[in-house]
Nucleic acid binder design. Structure first.
Lengths: 209, 209
DNA sequence: AACAAAATAACCCAAATGGGTCATTGTGAG
DNA sequence: CTCACAATGACCCATTTGGGTTATTTTGTT
């Protein structure tokens, strides 16, 4: 059985090449291809996958996501767009998109994305994936000074932030506990602290580690 | 110029097949392949991409991420693992992994992931990507683990993250140092830690303060 | 070759911490 | 009115930590 596809893309030229591309494989069947969310919502049968542009007249693709999901919850939605800004990506993901790929992505990759989403996964182009992962990381701190820590000191500070005691750190690094203590003393001087707890606080807040 | 690769994988059989796979392409060069984070940190030259297993003896792959990043910030890290649980994925991403692919992924896809990450993107297998996207969707009662801290305990934990000693906290709150110590003990039990440093790390990373 | 920095290691001592146990008081939910 | 729990306070003991000093070896840079 073929995977059924719906396309919402206002640029007719690109829309036609998508239809041509996808239809050239017997595994996929483009059931409908329209230029706006309104048309798509209008008496169109459910499909497995919807390729949805973001920049659309009237209702944007992102606004359209909840509408499609509401009408036929089983439909998977892949955003197909030229925009890779954080705002768009985040909005689409929150709205429930199952994929987010850029239009400049190769035809082969687009087909691959359809297949992946159909199989229950999510499809993200590498650059989009990178931005999505970046959303999980806390905003970049100032990270002004403190670069005076030596590599070994940074390493030990990292282990401290993982909750290790001095002894465990020594065993982990295969060095004497005395040596670890000396490094810790140096770290304290450089960070102007007098305890592990404070060092961890500074390290995590100032993003040294 | 070849893309240089480092591999950290304790299962020697799988490690060898990875080396064999990657080395069979002239575009990639496996510079080193070891069985633990410690070996990798030990006199190993920087590479473009590190393939890093999660389940490792001693230091886990996730604990290793910040160490690698600290030593050579330019190195990209791809987690290569059998685990696709939310916990592992989230930890790895927060720690700064650039890719997260499952071991059962086809050899071609592994090579593809290396190429994508080398080009500045992020590599996620579809099923992992799906779980990552799911993390953005609203869900309830995840923080139950830490909401058990009483108001006073949260207050004291906050002061600990400011670097205060037990005595200073007692003076600040106008209560006995013994009382503060008792609260700290309760905090340790609830957070499953055994030191201020670890408590601070958990508090800041989990944003419970 | 000379020098500085980093990493290694050891010693001492006082203070802080972690881990138990026990007890009193107040407060809110049944 | 109980009952659980939060908050308060105390004692003991072993371990860890913080702070000071000194010293050797390695490494990188003039």
């Amino acid at each position: 059985m073929e995977i059924t596809i719906g396309i919402v893309e206002d640029h007719s030229e690109f829309r036609n090449s998508l239809v041509f591309l996808i239809s050239s494989f017997t595994a996929y069947q483009v059931v409908w291809a329209v230029g706006s969310v309104r048309e798509a919502m209008d008496n169109k049968e459910p499909v497995d996958i919807i390729l949805l542009d973001i920049n659309l007249p009237n209702l944007s693709g992102i606004q359209g996501i909840p509408l499609f999901k509401a009408k036929f919850p089983g439909q998977k939605i892949i955003m197909l767009t030229i925009q890779d800004d954080e705002e768009s990506i985040l909005s689409a993901i929150k709205a429930g998109a199952d994929g987010y790929i850029l239009k400049k992505t190769s035809p082969q990759k687009i087909l691959e994305a359809i297949q992946q989403v159909y199989e229950g996964g999510a499809a993200l182009t590498p650059m989009v994936a990178k931005q999505v992962l970046a959303l999980f990381k806390p905003k970049k701190a100032v990270k002004v000074t403190h670069t005076s820590l030596t590599p070994r000191e940074k390493e030990i500070l990292t282990l401290i932030t993982q909750g290790m005691s001095t002894l465990v750190i020594a065993e982990t690094l295969f060095i004497s506990i005395q040596t670890v203590r000396n490094h810790i003393k140096s770290i304290y001087e450089k960070l102007h602290v007098h305890s592990k707890a404070h060092a961890v606080a500074i390290a995590l807040k100032e993003k040294i580690v």
